[in-house]
């Protein structure tokens, strides 16, 4: 008897892995970074395909393979999704309160720091003519 290729298992698994790996790409754009809907959409598509593949494998085992490897794919995809959710919905929200940060109406603490060319830049240098926007960032690694 001839087996049919249970493609939804493979495609679903690849799409789910892509849901995690593509974070590096989507994080560059505010629209897909503020809320990672693009990654979640990929995970959802992957889940639907994996389910279709599993239904085929278990429902019509005489036609489709994949009971064992399909289950393994599904478990791995679920673990990846769990890891992603933990990072996105827990780790990224562990931000200090910064209760003592300068508030509106307060004077900004002065400073002088070297820029990327080694030149000292003081807050006072940045304030003319109409003030400055300071962006504190985590750094590059």
């Amino acid at each position: 008897m001839k087996w049919k290729w249970n493609w939804p298992l493979w495609v679903g698994f690849i799409v789910a892995v892509g849901g995690l790996l593509s974070y590096e790409y989507f994080v560059r754009f505010p629209i897909t970074r503020d809320f990672p809907w693009a990654n979640l959409l990929l995970f959802a598509i992957g889940a639907v395909l994996l389910l279709i593949g599993l239904f085929r494998a278990f429902g019509r085992p005489h036609l489709y393979r994949g009971k064992a490897f399909g289950s393994i794919f599904a478990v791995i995809a679920l673990l990846l999704f769990g890891f992603f959710s933990y990072e996105i919905f827990y780790v990224l929200r562990q931000v200090p309160l910064s209760a003592q940060a300068p508030r509106i109406g307060e004077k900004a603490p002065p400073f002088s720091l070297p820029d990327q060319d080694g030149k000292q830049v003081a807050l006072a240098d940045l304030l003319s003519p109409n003030g400055a926007v300071l962006i504190f960032y985590r750094g590059h690694w």
Binding site: V95, S98, A101, P102, R103, I104, G105, E106, K107, A108, P110, L123, A124, L126, L127, S128, P129, N130, G131, A132, V133, L134, I135, F136, Y137, R138
Partner: peptide
Amino acid sequence: PAEFYIDASGTV
């Protein structure tokens, strides 16, 4: 991550 706008007088 944090962002401030400080005016010319040094006030946040």
